[in-house]
Amino acid sequence: MTTSAPRRRHLASSPFQADPEPVILQFEVDEMVSHDSYGMGRVVSVEAQAVTVDFRPQLIRIASPFARLAKL
């Protein structure tokens, strides 16, 4: 059984900034993207937690949160 660590409480009077919420990108089919390792490619399939990208000559399935993938 695994449990995630509880989120730290942020007081409004605190001089420190709260951790920002992570932004998860949304991709669409036929959208051009760039990956740090594979280069430029085109999204061919979108799933709930992953996208499949055609980087010619290979298809790569990339899971969310898409850390190394950027829209062009």
Rank of each mutant, 00 (worst) to 15 (best):
V44K: 11
E21A: 14
E21Y: 15
R8D: 10
A5I: 05
L69A: 12
R42T: 14
D54I: 05
R7F: 10
A5C: 06
D54G: 08
R9C: 01
P22A: 00
Q17H: 10
F27E: 00
R8Q: 09
I24C: 03
P65K: 00
P6L: 05
S14N: 10
V33D: 05
T3D: 13
R9P: 04
R7G: 05
I24E: 07
V46A: 07
M40P: 01
M1V: 13
Q17T: 12
M40A: 14
S14I: 01
P22D: 01
F16T: 00
S64T: 13
T3M: 06
A48I: 06
D54A: 10
P57N: 07
L69C: 14
R7W: 03
R7P: 03
A63M: 14
E21I: 15
F66Q: 08
P6E: 05
R68D: 12
A5E: 13
D30N: 08
S13W: 12
R68Q: 13
L69Y: 14
V44L: 11
T2N: 13
E28L: 05
R61M: 08
V29D: 03
R61Y: 01
A18E: 01
F16W: 08
D30K: 00
V51P: 04
G39R: 02
F27A: 06
L69D: 15
L69G: 11
H35L: 02
P20Y: 01
V53H: 05
V53F: 04
Q26N: 11
A12D: 06
L11P: 08
R56M: 04
P65S: 06
A12Y: 02
T52K: 12
R56I: 01
V23R: 03
V46K: 03
I60G: 09
E21K: 15
F16S: 08
S34W: 06
F55E: 02
R61I: 03
E31N: 11
R7M: 11
Q49D: 13
Q49A: 10
V51W: 08
F27N: 00
A12R: 09
A48V: 04
I62Y: 11
V29A: 08
H10D: 02
V46F: 07
A70W: 11
A18I: 00
P20L: 01
R7N: 13
R56Q: 10
H35Y: 03
T2A: 14
E21W: 08
M40Q: 13
S4C: 01
R42N: 05
